[in-house]
């Protein structure tokens, strides 16, 4: 299955980006083959509002089944949920470490947002 991990850099040794909507990069990984692809989310860094919603939409275009990130707010969660993407939030470490934990079933799926929304 394909999953997306928010990342501060463009390789597997980068730290996971704690912010979902304003993460600079996403590493999309095929958990069977370990092949990965780097997706830029840069155009959402400076938008005035709705970064979580736009980022969720961006991610949904890459046919991933799960997203792993630090913090995910209510509107981002609703959008990901509607796109049928599972959310694993409140996660820390490097992309490689997080991927390993995910494969070993050590991450817990989030049932909702783990932080409050901005603005509204």
């Amino acid at each position: 299955m394909k999953i997306a991990i928010t990342s501060v850099g463009q390789d597997l040794e980068s730290k996971i980006d704690a912010r979902f909507g304003r993460a600079k990069w996403f590493i999309v990984i095929d958990t069977e083959t370990n092949q990965h692809q780097v997706i830029s989310n840069e155009h959402n860094l400076n938008i005035s509002q709705g970064a979580g919603i736009q980022t969720a939409e961006n991610i949904s275009r890459h046919n991933v089944e799960a997203v792993i990130t630090g913090n995910c707010g209510p509107k981002a969660f609703t959008t990901l949920n509607s796109a049928g993407i599972k959310v694993y939030s409140a996660v820390d470490g490097t992309v490689a470490e997080v991927l390993e934990k995910f494969k070993n079933g050590k991450l817990k799926q989030a049932g909702g947002a783990n932080v409050e929304g901005h603005w509204a």
Partner: peptide, 18 residues
Amino acid sequence: QFSAIVCVNKNVLTFDKM
């Protein structure tokens, strides 16, 4: 321009306050 309406996975979501 404000992410108040978005289409994902054949669903249209609206966020009124945006």
